[in-house]
Design a protein around this nucleic acid. Structure first.
Length: 293
DNA sequence: CCGCGGGCCTGAGAGC
DNA sequence: TGCTCTCAGGCCCGCG
């Protein structure tokens, strides 16, 4: 599911029930997700007030009054849903009508705001980890993450600079979280199409030999901003797993120009090309060879 | 250091 | 209906 717009959608759904609320009960229903849970995972959450819920790239970060931070990553198939606790359940017990795939409900929180928060992740590529806020800078999961694509410091000059000398494709460079943090396969394909740049273009061509930022880089950054902002407004893209915390689907998938649209006519005005698909670094790339150069 | 491919998991969908 | 195969929105790791 989750690239930046989906994670941001989830953050906005969780914020009202988490911020300012205490974690009354925390439960991990299996020993691991992608990684084993820390032995003190539950203990460090229980009784803590969540003072803020933020996002860094594709990570959700819940600040706790203890000085810890709960890092949460949705992997490929993770989702959160927020429901009202069953009043008949014992206080420490999660007793709600079971959803179809509740076998994959792995982590549960009961909040003092009157919400139960359930993390479901069939493929278990997601993970959670509690770290001290003071150790955030040394956290291996976060170290090396590039700039936020919607942040102030991310602009054409910066992108061109970090792609300078890169012999790899533009597609691979944009998927590299060290270059820019938060894009995934869908939004890279969509941003490249909207900026009329080929996914096969060499990344280094975003700047000239003299180090000047090209118009290509400017177009690309503009397209990244537009596509991410539009996707957030739409509640993200729901292909199979992504849900808003209310259970509603996102609807940006209806605005895809190329992703999952192989064989369709290119939507660029007067282009007349056809959307093609090929494999790049082991992943599907969708693009229009006619208008993306 | 860089770029690439394999692997981690489960489930959905296609084809037979 | 049911089997097998392919593929999926992410990212870590080891190899050359």
């Amino acid at each position: 599911m989750p690239e930046l717009p989906e994670v941001e959608t989830v953050r906005r759904g969780l914020q009202p029930v988490m911020e300012g609320a205490k974690i009354l009960v925390a439960e991990a229903r299996r020993p691991d997700l992608r990684f084993p849970f820390q032995p003190d995972f539950v203990a460090r959450l229980k009784g803590q007030v969540v003072t803020g819920l933020g996002r860094r790239a594709k990570y959700l970060m819940a600040d706790l009054a203890s000085g810890d931070v709960l890092l949460m990553h949705l992997g490929m198939s993770g989702s959160f849903r927020v429901i009202k606790p069953d009043n008949e359940a014992a206080p420490g017990e999660f007793h709600y009508p079971r959803a179809k795939d509740s076998t994959h409900d792995h982590v549960l929180f009961r909040m003092s705001s009157g919400a139960d928060i359930i993390f479901n992740d069939p493929r278990r590529f997601g993970y959670m980890k509690v770290i001290a806020r003071s150790a955030l800078d040394e956290e291996p999961l976060l170290r090396g993450l590039g700039p936020e694509p919607l942040g102030n410091e991310f602009d054409a000059a910066m992108l061109a600079r970090s792609c300078a000398g890169k012999t790899t494709s533009l597609k691979a460079a944009l998927l590299d979280q060290r270059v820019v943090a938060g894009l995934g396969n869908i939004y890279v394909c969509e941003a490249l199409h909207r900026s009329h740049l080929s996914p096969r273009r060499i990344a280094a061509t975003l700047s000239t030999k003299k180090g000047e930022t090209t118009d290509h880089a400017k177009r690309l950054v503009g397209a990244i901003h537009t596509v991410l902002n539009d996707a957030i407004k739409a509640g993200g893209s729901s292909l199979r797993d992504h849900r808003q915390t209310s259970g509603e689907l996102g609807y940006f998938q209806h605005s895809f120009k190329v992703y999952d649209r192989e064989g369709e006519k290119c939507s660029t005005p007067r282009c007349g090309g056809t959307v093609k698909r090929f494999t790049q670094n082991g992943r599907s790339t969708f693009w229009c060879p006619k208008c993306q150069k």
